[in-house]
Amino acid sequence: NQASVVANQLIPINTALALVMMRSEVVTPVGIPAEDIPRLVSMQVNRAVPLGTTLMPDMVKGYA
């Protein structure tokens, strides 16, 4: 199964993503693939992302 990017902490709106904020986990539904974690670093989220939430492409500015 494909691992997705999951929030490792609460990520406030407009926060630039850092490695420590993300982990990979096999979840349903599938979100952003875990292999894209390096690409996500320094991109901003466009909403608050609670701990344990799967990151979806529409949550990250400039990802989709």
Score class of each variant (00 low, 15 high):
residue 59 M to Q: 04
residue 16 A to C: 15
residue 14 N to W: 14
residue 32 I to R: 00
residue 7 A to I: 04
residue 55 L to N: 02
residue 9 Q to I: 13
residue 36 D to P: 00
residue 14 N to F: 13
residue 63 Y to G: 03
residue 13 I to G: 08
residue 23 R to E: 12
residue 53 T to W: 10
residue 54 T to V: 14
residue 20 V to Y: 12
residue 50 P to M: 08
residue 32 I to A: 00
residue 23 R to I: 09
residue 43 M to H: 12
residue 5 V to P: 01
residue 22 M to D: 03
residue 44 Q to I: 14
residue 32 I to K: 01
residue 32 I to C: 04
residue 55 L to V: 11
residue 4 S to V: 02
residue 11 I to E: 00
residue 27 V to P: 01
residue 10 L to E: 15
residue 23 R to D: 06
residue 1 N to M: 15
residue 32 I to S: 02
residue 45 V to T: 13
residue 49 V to P: 01
residue 9 Q to L: 11
residue 56 M to A: 08
residue 2 Q to K: 06
residue 29 P to N: 04
residue 48 A to W: 08
residue 33 P to F: 11
residue 46 N to P: 02
residue 46 N to Q: 14
residue 44 Q to T: 15
residue 20 V to N: 15
residue 43 M to D: 02
residue 43 M to F: 09
residue 21 M to L: 05
residue 19 L to S: 14
residue 4 S to P: 02
residue 4 S to R: 01
residue 54 T to W: 00
residue 10 L to Q: 13
residue 48 A to K: 11
residue 32 I to W: 02
residue 61 K to Q: 11
residue 52 G to Q: 03
residue 63 Y to F: 07
residue 25 E to W: 05
residue 3 A to T: 13
residue 16 A to P: 11
residue 50 P to S: 10
residue 60 V to D: 03
residue 5 V to K: 00
residue 50 P to R: 06
residue 47 R to H: 10
residue 1 N to S: 15
residue 60 V to S: 01
residue 37 I to H: 01
residue 49 V to A: 04
residue 25 E to A: 08
residue 62 G to E: 10
residue 2 Q to D: 15
residue 56 M to G: 04
residue 60 V to K: 02
residue 28 T to M: 08
residue 52 G to H: 08
residue 51 L to F: 15
residue 53 T to A: 12
residue 52 G to A: 11
residue 31 G to V: 02
residue 57 P to C: 08
residue 17 L to E: 03
residue 12 P to W: 04
residue 25 E to C: 06
residue 17 L to C: 03
residue 36 D to A: 08
residue 5 V to G: 01
residue 24 S to F: 06
residue 41 V to M: 05
residue 12 P to Y: 05
residue 7 A to W: 00
residue 6 V to Y: 01
residue 38 P to N: 11
residue 36 D to F: 09
residue 1 N to T: 14
residue 61 K to A: 11
residue 37 I to L: 13
residue 40 L to E: 00
residue 62 G to C: 15
residue 48 A to Q: 14
residue 30 V to I: 15
residue 2 Q to L: 15
residue 57 P to A: 12
residue 5 V to Y: 00
residue 53 T to L: 14
residue 8 N to L: 06
residue 7 A to Y: 02
residue 25 E to I: 05
residue 14 N to V: 03
residue 12 P to F: 05
residue 7 A to F: 02
residue 52 G to W: 04
residue 22 M to T: 00
residue 21 M to S: 04
residue 41 V to Y: 05
residue 50 P to V: 11
residue 5 V to W: 02
residue 2 Q to M: 12
residue 23 R to Q: 06
residue 61 K to M: 12
